[in-house]
Design a protein around this nucleic acid. Structure first.
Lengths: 237, 237
DNA sequence: AGTTTAATCAAACGACTGCTTGAGTCAACT
DNA sequence: AGTTGACTCAAGCAGTCGTTTGATTAAACT
């Protein structure tokens, strides 16, 4: 399932672009606010001030519109990620710094440069959606760069078994997505001391937390027993 | 917005219970698979083999059905959480163990005892949904126990400032929700070496990771500068 | 000039949405 | 035996959904 021809249009038509862009902007905003199934095309076109048929002319279908909304932001994000990752390897004699790799992975998608909190929330919604269509969207754009980051992390953590690394990478995705998705969950709990919609502050707390987590001892192999951390724990080194 | 009277029915009617329960089971399954807006009542009643009107008779509305689905699982989960937390304090002379507290928070919702992966996925979907109705559902059932866990964590980490603790608690929620939501995202990436739908394995890797993250040094106060982990990046526009 | 082509419009299509109605069923009461 | 009240049913309500149509516009090309 590839991106439809509608979605990769790049011409500079004098009329079409403003309509196209306004649809994309409205859709991005409303999709992220209400979910793809939670908002109708009629609501989107009303918000954008365009005709209903324009959506199908430019994007083919509602799902084609979603693809286009997604592709517009995700391509620059993926590129910036890899650029930042390259900078982590500037000094080839030293292993890349864990903090730097993590920040390179998280920053492009979380700061305001590529759609900001709005697009971040949409990504979080899609991440929670297990449908085949949605999943292919995410995999298509992210799996390539994810592989490169896994390699860099493996180099920075040479003593960590691959399995542990994969799990921790998965957990990192979780903290990222959840932070992007939640514009207010902890706030109520903490008298506004934490503001997860402040992505810069989120990153400042998130990166050291994750780096420390990556540095944990690997799980002892052999049958995985929950008891290893239940009941009588040994103190950590 | 409180749980509707429809949702707290507890009688043992000879006829009604099977219909009620079958609707709840089908709704739980389909909500978690397709999202609340992604599935129609007609699909639910067809799957349950009951009449459309039965949903409105028993639950009042589609949202009432969602509330009932949610309440049925979440009440036992919250109770088991607090029970496990109490066990962490059995020896009052020692501070509670970090691993134990984290496990007490995560286990009840992730293992198979309360709806298993199906209900977990639904929770993850709701967590990504920023709508007012959904948010109140989560807050209503979780904020109380969350407060108690924050207290326990603060006792186990006496040197960690409250703000850092809140953020890390937030990150813990993220890893939990994302792991519950994703029945296959890393699998493709790692040749099936990690299986996030295996909640026991997830927990075995997740708890030590989080515990180590909680043990990270606090963020230095004063103006939060991203530069603290960004080596020599040019200033961003 | 006339022709072509991309873009926008109002109007409508059938299918589907959550929800209601009123008649009917069956067990438990007086 | 007869009434009550909880429950289930087929049928249908008004409204919304994504999508399509055919006419209309206006800029670009010959």
């Amino acid at each position: 399932m590839t991106i439809a021809a509608h979605a990769i249009k790049t011409s500079n038509d004098t009329r079409g672009d403003s309509t196209r862009t306004r649809i994309l902007d409205s859709a991005e905003h409303l999709f992220s606010e209400c979910g793809v199934n939670g908002v109708s095309l009629r609501t989107i076109v009303a918000h954008a001030g365009v005709n209903t048929a324009a959506v199908h002319y430019h994007f083919g279908s509602k799902y084609g519109l979603l693809e286009a909304v997604f592709a517009r932001r995700i391509v620059p994000i993926a590129k910036e990620r890899l650029d930042l990752l390259a900078k982590c390897h500037q000094n080839p004699s030293l292993p890349p710094l864990l903090h730097q790799i993590i920040a390179a992975f998280l920053e492009p998608g979380m700061t305001g440069r590529h759609g900001g909190a709005t697009f971040a929330r949409l990504r979080a919604r899609l991440a929670a959606d297990a449908s085949e269509e949605t999943r292919s969207l995410l995999v298509q754009y992210f799996d390539d760069s994810s592989g490169q980051f896994l390699k860099a992390l493996a180099k920075a953590l040479p003593n960590l078994p691959a399995t542990d690394l994969y799990w921790r990478f998965h957990f990192m995705l979780g903290t990222m997505v959840y932070t992007m998705a939640n514009p207010g969950r902890i706030q109520a709990l903490t008298k506004n001391e934490c503001d997860p919609s402040d992505m810069d502050a989120s990153l400042a707390y998130l990166v050291p937390f994750l780096a420390q987590g990556f540095l944990a001892d690997p799980i002892p192999k052999a049958p995985i027993m929950l008891k290893s951390y239940k009941n009588n724990n040994k103190p950590k080194p």
